[in-house]
Design a protein around this nucleic acid. Sequence first.
DNA 1: AGTTGTCAAGCTAGT
DNA 2: ACTAGCTTGACAACT
Length: 307
Amino acid sequence: MNDRTEDAPPTMKLGYPCINTTIGCTANSTFRLASYSNQRFIETVRNNIRCTARILRFNVEHGLLFFRIGDLVPFASHPVCRIDWPLYFRRELAEAGQFIADHGIRISMHPDQFVLLNALDEGILRNSLEELDYHAKLLDALRLDSTAKIQIHAGGVYGGKSGSIARFAERCRRLPPRIRRRLVIENDDRSYGLADCLEVHRLTGVPVVFDNFHHERLNAGEPLREALLAATATWAAADGLPMVDYSSQQPAGPRGRHATSVDLRHFGRFLDATEGLDFDIMLEIKDKEQSALRAIRTLRRRRMPAA
DNA sequence: AGTTGTCAAGCTAGT
DNA sequence: ACTAGCTTGACAACT
Protein backbone atom coordinates (compact mmCIF):
# COMPACT_ATOMS: atom_id res chain seq x y z
CA MET A 1 0.00 0.00 0.00
CA ASN A 2 2.76 2.40 0.89
CA ASP A 3 5.07 1.00 -1.74
CA ARG A 4 4.58 3.28 -4.67
CA THR A 5 4.96 2.14 -8.21
CA GLU A 6 7.24 3.82 -10.71
CA ASP A 7 4.29 5.66 -12.23
CA ALA A 8 2.77 7.00 -9.04
CA PRO A 9 4.63 10.02 -7.70
CA PRO A 10 5.05 10.26 -3.94
CA THR A 11 2.35 12.24 -2.19
CA MET A 12 4.45 12.65 0.92
CA LYS A 13 3.83 15.74 3.03
CA LEU A 14 6.23 17.29 5.50
CA GLY A 15 5.57 19.46 8.51
CA TYR A 16 6.35 20.37 12.11
CA PRO A 17 4.57 20.38 15.45
CA CYS A 18 2.51 23.07 17.14
CA ILE A 19 4.74 26.13 17.00
CA ASN A 20 5.84 28.59 14.35
CA THR A 21 8.83 30.68 15.39
CA THR A 22 8.65 33.13 12.47
CA ILE A 23 5.24 34.74 12.41
CA GLY A 24 5.14 35.90 16.01
CA CYS A 25 1.95 34.48 17.45
CA THR A 26 1.37 31.50 19.70
CA ALA A 27 -1.33 28.93 19.09
CA ASN A 28 -0.77 27.14 22.41
CA SER A 29 -1.37 29.95 24.83
CA THR A 30 -2.57 28.92 28.26
CA PHE A 31 -2.76 30.24 31.80
CA ARG A 32 -2.74 29.00 35.36
CA LEU A 33 -5.70 27.08 36.66
CA ALA A 34 -5.78 29.51 39.60
CA SER A 35 -6.51 32.38 37.23
CA TYR A 36 -9.25 30.59 35.32
CA SER A 37 -12.23 32.59 34.20
CA ASN A 38 -14.69 32.16 31.34
CA GLN A 39 -13.49 35.39 29.82
CA ARG A 40 -9.84 34.39 30.01
CA PHE A 41 -10.72 31.02 28.51
CA ILE A 42 -12.63 32.51 25.59
CA GLU A 43 -9.94 35.08 24.83
CA THR A 44 -7.23 32.46 24.95
CA VAL A 45 -9.01 29.98 22.71
CA ARG A 46 -9.97 32.71 20.23
CA ASN A 47 -6.34 33.81 19.96
CA ASN A 48 -5.15 30.22 19.63
CA ILE A 49 -7.57 29.55 16.78
CA ARG A 50 -6.58 32.77 15.01
CA CYS A 51 -2.91 31.97 15.36
CA THR A 52 -3.45 28.44 14.11
CA ALA A 53 -5.14 29.86 11.04
CA ARG A 54 -2.16 32.19 10.45
CA ILE A 55 0.28 29.31 10.83
CA LEU A 56 -1.68 27.17 8.39
CA ARG A 57 -1.63 29.97 5.82
CA PHE A 58 2.12 30.36 6.27
CA ASN A 59 2.54 26.62 5.89
CA VAL A 60 0.54 26.44 2.67
CA GLU A 61 2.52 29.36 1.23
CA HIS A 62 5.71 27.45 1.99
CA GLY A 63 4.58 24.01 0.90
CA LEU A 64 4.47 22.55 4.41
CA LEU A 65 1.31 20.45 4.38
CA PHE A 66 1.57 18.48 7.61
CA PHE A 67 0.91 20.15 10.96
CA ARG A 68 0.42 19.04 14.54
CA ILE A 69 -2.12 21.07 16.44
CA GLY A 70 -1.02 21.71 20.00
CA ASP A 71 -2.91 22.75 23.11
CA LEU A 72 -5.60 24.85 21.46
CA VAL A 73 -8.22 24.64 24.20
CA PRO A 74 -6.62 24.81 27.65
CA PHE A 75 -8.41 22.89 30.42
CA ALA A 76 -10.86 21.49 27.87
CA SER A 77 -11.00 18.17 29.72
CA HIS A 78 -10.91 19.70 33.20
CA PRO A 79 -14.10 20.06 35.25
CA VAL A 80 -13.39 23.78 35.59
CA CYS A 81 -14.29 24.22 31.93
CA ARG A 82 -18.05 24.72 31.71
CA ILE A 83 -18.23 26.28 28.26
CA ASP A 84 -19.50 24.38 25.24
CA TRP A 85 -16.51 25.54 23.24
CA PRO A 86 -17.20 23.48 20.07
CA LEU A 87 -20.50 25.34 19.87
CA TYR A 88 -19.14 28.72 20.94
CA PHE A 89 -16.33 28.58 18.34
CA ARG A 90 -18.31 26.63 15.77
CA ARG A 91 -17.83 29.11 12.94
CA GLU A 92 -14.12 29.77 13.50
CA LEU A 93 -13.34 26.07 13.83
CA ALA A 94 -15.35 25.13 10.76
CA GLU A 95 -13.57 27.87 8.77
CA ALA A 96 -10.16 26.62 9.84
CA GLY A 97 -11.22 23.09 8.97
CA GLN A 98 -12.38 24.21 5.55
CA PHE A 99 -8.97 25.79 4.92
CA ILE A 100 -7.32 22.54 5.96
CA ALA A 101 -9.52 20.54 3.61
CA ASP A 102 -9.16 22.99 0.71
CA HIS A 103 -5.38 22.80 0.82
CA GLY A 104 -5.02 19.12 1.60
CA ILE A 105 -3.28 19.73 4.90
CA ARG A 106 -2.62 16.65 7.04
CA ILE A 107 -3.35 17.12 10.73
CA SER A 108 -2.24 15.26 13.84
CA MET A 109 -2.49 15.87 17.57
CA HIS A 110 -0.34 14.46 20.36
CA PRO A 111 -1.82 14.39 23.87
CA ASP A 112 0.96 14.43 26.42
CA GLN A 113 2.32 11.96 28.90
CA PHE A 114 -0.72 12.03 31.18
CA VAL A 115 -2.88 10.14 28.72
CA LEU A 116 -2.43 6.52 29.76
CA LEU A 117 -4.99 4.18 28.29
CA ASN A 118 -3.53 1.21 30.18
CA ALA A 119 -3.45 2.95 33.56
CA LEU A 120 -4.17 0.83 36.63
CA ASP A 121 -5.66 3.78 38.47
CA GLU A 122 -9.29 4.41 37.59
CA GLY A 123 -8.94 8.16 38.01
CA ILE A 124 -6.02 8.30 35.61
CA LEU A 125 -7.98 6.24 33.11
CA ARG A 126 -10.97 8.54 33.46
CA ASN A 127 -8.82 11.63 32.90
CA SER A 128 -7.17 9.98 29.93
CA LEU A 129 -10.52 9.20 28.34
CA GLU A 130 -11.67 12.78 28.93
CA GLU A 131 -8.53 14.07 27.31
CA LEU A 132 -8.94 11.77 24.30
CA ASP A 133 -12.53 12.92 24.06
CA TYR A 134 -11.38 16.54 23.91
CA HIS A 135 -8.92 15.80 21.12
CA ALA A 136 -11.57 13.96 19.09
CA LYS A 137 -14.04 16.80 19.70
CA LEU A 138 -11.62 19.35 18.32
CA LEU A 139 -10.87 17.37 15.17
CA ASP A 140 -14.60 16.76 14.76
CA ALA A 141 -15.31 20.48 15.16
CA LEU A 142 -12.78 21.10 12.39
CA ARG A 143 -14.84 18.56 10.42
CA LEU A 144 -11.78 16.53 9.49
CA ASP A 145 -12.01 12.96 8.27
CA SER A 146 -10.41 9.87 9.84
CA THR A 147 -6.99 10.69 8.37
CA ALA A 148 -6.62 13.33 11.13
CA LYS A 149 -5.02 11.40 13.96
CA ILE A 150 -4.55 11.47 17.72
CA GLN A 151 -1.17 10.04 18.58
CA ILE A 152 -0.32 8.56 21.98
CA HIS A 153 2.20 6.16 23.46
CA ALA A 154 1.31 2.70 24.70
CA GLY A 155 1.55 3.92 28.32
CA GLY A 156 3.10 2.57 31.50
CA VAL A 157 4.53 -0.89 32.07
CA TYR A 158 3.20 -1.30 35.62
CA GLY A 159 5.44 -4.25 36.30
CA GLY A 160 4.30 -6.37 33.36
CA LYS A 161 4.43 -5.47 29.72
CA SER A 162 2.22 -8.21 28.28
CA GLY A 163 -0.52 -7.55 30.82
CA SER A 164 -0.28 -3.82 30.18
CA ILE A 165 -0.47 -4.35 26.42
CA ALA A 166 -3.51 -6.58 26.90
CA ARG A 167 -5.10 -3.90 29.08
CA PHE A 168 -4.39 -1.28 26.43
CA ALA A 169 -6.05 -3.47 23.81
CA GLU A 170 -9.10 -4.12 25.96
CA ARG A 171 -9.56 -0.40 26.71
CA CYS A 172 -9.06 0.32 23.05
CA ARG A 173 -11.87 -2.00 22.07
CA ARG A 174 -14.20 -0.14 24.41
CA LEU A 175 -13.39 3.30 23.05
CA PRO A 176 -16.20 5.13 21.31
CA PRO A 177 -15.69 4.88 17.52
CA ARG A 178 -15.27 8.65 17.21
CA ILE A 179 -12.09 8.34 19.26
CA ARG A 180 -10.87 4.99 18.09
CA ARG A 181 -11.00 5.87 14.41
CA ARG A 182 -8.45 8.60 15.10
CA LEU A 183 -6.20 6.80 17.56
CA VAL A 184 -2.65 5.87 16.58
CA ILE A 185 0.25 4.76 18.75
CA GLU A 186 3.88 5.76 18.56
CA ASN A 187 6.91 3.74 19.64
CA ASP A 188 8.60 5.35 22.64
CA ASP A 189 12.25 5.39 23.67
CA ARG A 190 12.02 3.70 27.08
CA SER A 191 9.31 1.07 27.37
CA TYR A 192 7.32 0.21 24.28
CA GLY A 193 9.43 -0.21 21.17
CA LEU A 194 8.27 -0.86 17.65
CA ALA A 195 7.76 -4.60 18.22
CA ASP A 196 5.48 -3.85 21.18
CA CYS A 197 3.48 -1.35 19.15
CA LEU A 198 3.09 -3.88 16.35
CA GLU A 199 1.70 -6.29 18.93
CA VAL A 200 -0.80 -3.63 20.02
CA HIS A 201 -1.73 -3.19 16.39
CA ARG A 202 -2.24 -6.94 15.98
CA LEU A 203 -4.63 -6.92 18.94
CA THR A 204 -6.50 -3.73 18.08
CA GLY A 205 -5.97 -2.65 14.49
CA VAL A 206 -4.62 0.69 15.73
CA PRO A 207 -2.02 2.03 13.26
CA VAL A 208 1.57 2.62 14.37
CA VAL A 209 3.39 5.95 13.98
CA PHE A 210 7.06 5.19 13.50
CA ASP A 211 9.47 7.49 15.35
CA ASN A 212 13.00 7.04 14.02
CA PHE A 213 14.67 8.79 16.94
CA HIS A 214 12.93 6.67 19.56
CA HIS A 215 13.75 3.63 17.47
CA GLU A 216 17.42 4.58 17.52
CA ARG A 217 17.27 4.46 21.31
CA LEU A 218 15.01 1.44 21.80
CA ASN A 219 14.80 -1.36 19.27
CA ALA A 220 15.12 -5.09 18.71
CA GLY A 221 17.77 -4.73 16.06
CA GLU A 222 15.38 -3.98 13.18
CA PRO A 223 17.10 -1.97 10.47
CA LEU A 224 15.46 1.39 9.73
CA ARG A 225 13.87 0.45 6.44
CA GLU A 226 12.47 -2.81 7.76
CA ALA A 227 11.11 -1.06 10.84
CA LEU A 228 9.49 1.70 8.84
CA LEU A 229 7.94 -0.81 6.44
CA ALA A 230 6.44 -2.77 9.31
CA ALA A 231 4.95 0.36 10.86
CA THR A 232 3.54 1.76 7.64
CA ALA A 233 1.90 -1.60 6.87
CA THR A 234 -0.39 -1.03 9.87
CA TRP A 235 -2.18 1.87 8.16
CA ALA A 236 -5.44 1.19 6.33
CA ALA A 237 -6.84 3.27 3.48
CA ALA A 238 -9.20 5.18 5.78
CA ASP A 239 -6.26 6.16 7.98
CA GLY A 240 -4.54 8.01 5.15
CA LEU A 241 -0.85 7.89 4.39
CA PRO A 242 1.25 6.55 7.29
CA MET A 243 2.66 9.19 9.62
CA VAL A 244 6.30 9.16 10.66
CA ASP A 245 8.00 11.28 13.32
CA TYR A 246 11.50 12.27 12.32
CA SER A 247 14.17 13.68 14.61
CA SER A 248 17.82 13.36 15.49
CA GLN A 249 19.89 13.73 18.64
CA GLN A 250 21.02 17.20 19.69
CA PRO A 251 24.82 16.70 19.38
CA ALA A 252 25.99 18.16 22.70
CA GLY A 253 22.73 17.68 24.57
CA PRO A 254 21.63 14.93 26.94
CA ARG A 255 20.55 11.67 25.33
CA GLY A 256 17.04 11.91 24.01
CA ARG A 257 16.97 15.63 23.39
CA HIS A 258 15.80 16.67 19.95
CA ALA A 259 18.21 18.50 17.69
CA THR A 260 18.12 22.31 17.67
CA SER A 261 18.21 22.40 13.91
CA VAL A 262 17.79 19.63 11.37
CA ASP A 263 20.94 17.67 10.51
CA LEU A 264 20.54 17.46 6.76
CA ARG A 265 23.12 14.70 6.42
CA HIS A 266 21.22 12.55 8.92
CA PHE A 267 17.97 13.45 7.17
CA GLY A 268 19.53 12.54 3.84
CA ARG A 269 20.54 9.14 5.16
CA PHE A 270 16.99 8.68 6.45
CA LEU A 271 15.61 9.46 2.98
CA ASP A 272 18.12 7.09 1.40
CA ALA A 273 17.07 4.28 3.72
CA THR A 274 13.38 4.84 3.00
CA GLU A 275 13.64 5.44 -0.74
CA GLY A 276 10.50 4.41 -2.59
CA LEU A 277 8.23 4.44 0.45
CA ASP A 278 5.48 6.99 0.81
CA PHE A 279 4.51 8.53 4.16
CA ASP A 280 4.02 11.90 5.82
CA ILE A 281 6.93 13.27 7.85
CA MET A 282 6.56 15.21 11.10
CA LEU A 283 9.87 16.91 11.78
CA GLU A 284 10.37 17.10 15.55
CA ILE A 285 13.12 19.69 15.63
CA LYS A 286 13.37 22.57 18.04
CA ASP A 287 13.49 25.38 15.51
CA LYS A 288 10.29 24.06 13.94
CA GLU A 289 9.38 25.59 10.56
CA GLN A 290 12.94 26.79 10.00
CA SER A 291 14.18 23.22 9.82
CA ALA A 292 11.05 22.10 8.01
CA LEU A 293 11.81 24.64 5.26
CA ARG A 294 15.36 23.34 4.90
CA ALA A 295 14.17 19.74 4.98
CA ILE A 296 11.52 20.21 2.33
CA ARG A 297 14.11 21.62 -0.06
CA THR A 298 16.14 18.46 0.43
CA LEU A 299 13.05 16.31 0.11
CA ARG A 300 11.95 17.94 -3.14
CA ARG A 301 15.39 17.62 -4.65
CA ARG A 302 15.57 13.93 -3.80
CA ARG A 303 12.02 12.69 -4.10
CA MET A 304 10.00 15.04 -6.23
CA PRO A 305 12.29 16.26 -8.98
CA ALA A 306 9.27 17.21 -11.08
CA ALA A 307 7.53 19.23 -8.39
C1' DA B 1 13.93 43.38 30.48
C1' DG B 2 15.81 39.20 31.62
C1' DT B 3 15.97 35.14 34.63
C1' DT B 4 14.11 31.36 37.21
C1' DG B 5 10.72 28.52 39.25
C1' DT B 6 6.16 26.57 38.44
C1' DC B 7 2.45 24.37 36.08
C1' DA B 8 -3.92 19.77 36.00
C1' DA B 9 -2.42 15.64 34.89
C1' DG B 10 2.62 10.40 35.54
C1' DC B 11 6.11 7.04 34.85
C1' DT B 12 10.67 5.10 36.09
C1' DA B 13 14.95 4.26 38.40
C1' DG B 14 17.39 4.96 42.38
C1' DT B 15 17.86 5.59 47.33
C1' DA C 1 8.17 4.91 51.07
C1' DC C 2 10.04 8.60 49.07
C1' DT C 3 12.59 11.65 45.72
C1' DA C 4 14.85 13.13 41.61
C1' DG C 5 14.82 13.02 36.73
C1' DC C 6 12.52 12.82 32.61
C1' DT C 7 10.56 16.43 27.66
C1' DT C 8 8.53 20.48 26.52
C1' DG C 9 6.85 25.19 26.40
C1' DA C 10 4.62 29.02 28.46
C1' DC C 11 3.02 31.48 32.54
C1' DA C 12 4.16 34.15 36.51
C1' DA C 13 6.90 35.90 39.92
C1' DC C 14 11.09 37.59 40.85
C1' DT C 15 15.57 40.16 40.14
